[in-house]
Design a protein around this nucleic acid. Sequence first.
DNA 1: CGCGCGATTGAGTAATTTCAAATCTAGTGG
DNA 2: CCACTAGATTTGAAATTACTCAATCGCGCG
Lengths: 197, 197
Amino acid sequence: MEPMLRRHIEHVVPLSDEEYAFVEKHFITRKATKGAMLITKGEPVRYVYLVIAGLLKLTYEDKKEREHIVSFAMEDWWETDYPAWFSGDPASLSLKCIEDTQVYCLTLDGYQTICQQLQKMEHFFLHKANRGHMASQDRILSFLTDTPRERYELVLRKQPVLLQRVPKALLAAYLGLSRETLSRLYRSHRSAGGGKM
Amino acid sequence: MEPMLRRHIEHVVPLSDEEYAFVEKHFITRKATKGAMLITKGEPVRYVYLVIAGLLKLTYEDKKEREHIVSFAMEDWWETDYPAWFSGDPASLSLKCIEDTQVYCLTLDGYQTICQQLQKMEHFFLHKANRGHMASQDRILSFLTDTPRERYELVLRKQPVLLQRVPKALLAAYLGLSRETLSRLYRSHRSAGGGKM
DNA sequence: CGCGCGATTGAGTAATTTCAAATCTAGTGG
DNA sequence: CCACTAGATTTGAAATTACTCAATCGCGCG
């Protein structure tokens, strides 16, 4: 069966068998169980990860030891602490498995080699980077424009999957509000929405 | 004298005279006076802009007609409504001059042609896209982690220029708080900071 | 001098947070 | 099947914080 990596890339640029083989050489795959850390704050960042299956959280811990979630990464997402990965500096973020997870791993060297040798792949990564940038701007806009309640409703509408897959406390850390507030918003929805009681 | 565009690009990738000439062909320059609109909500987005001099605001207007500032663009920044520029859809954002401004303009066609013909330039844009993505994640993190007061102090420390160049009301729309609140934060700083009265 | 605009101030209101306690749920062992 | 525990979720009440709305201030310009 076609490897997930190939399908993923060819969704953007077509590759010959030879080209794909060259690309694949630079990846390794890894399985990690729920709770495992792929990136730990303070340590070097070896890889950028492409999620094959499972769910990750990219987090930042502030001075008061509160955990904030920069993003969730699920199937087909690329994730890492980019500033640390690019620069070689120790990570300021952590990346942790919320579910059992399988990922492709790519080093910075591998990334650079692939881009240098295959313009198509540089094009692919440009495409992905642009997407990522736009998604981030969207999230910024949501912080500027929407109230916490509206942000919650947005997730409810656009990513109902998250409600199933992540504990509410994590969702709160992603939306930027306290678990208590999230719980109260959730309640008002249950009744208003017309669920059976 | 060296055109700003060439210096800007060669800060990332070196170009031969011939290569630069090819690239430059696809840009036009434009001057716009304070208050002019480069992108108007609802209209098509022809260009991505590289700011040569001046200052722009990229804004979103919500249902209650309140203006939110996604970002300020100053010298050496690339800015546009990316989703609209890439897709051809009408803009959901607006881009307006806060000061008299001079920009390079590049169409999507020009961008694609340049990338296709010169791998170096695809590399350049990949570099820029990665930077942009990281900057956005940083801003997201600030919304998650910092209180409005801390966000204000961050700008104070890291981009004091903005305080000089931008009216306070705009800064508030950028930080995601009301002008009144910003004014009060500003006050408490004046006294605490030990400025002459 | 008076107008106009940006910035500030004051007072009351709405929303969220915090801290503490109560409740619920799934898994474990008897 | 029931009791029990750990973790997640919910609830309550007080305290913070930011918002809104309205009024005032300060300054540059005609």
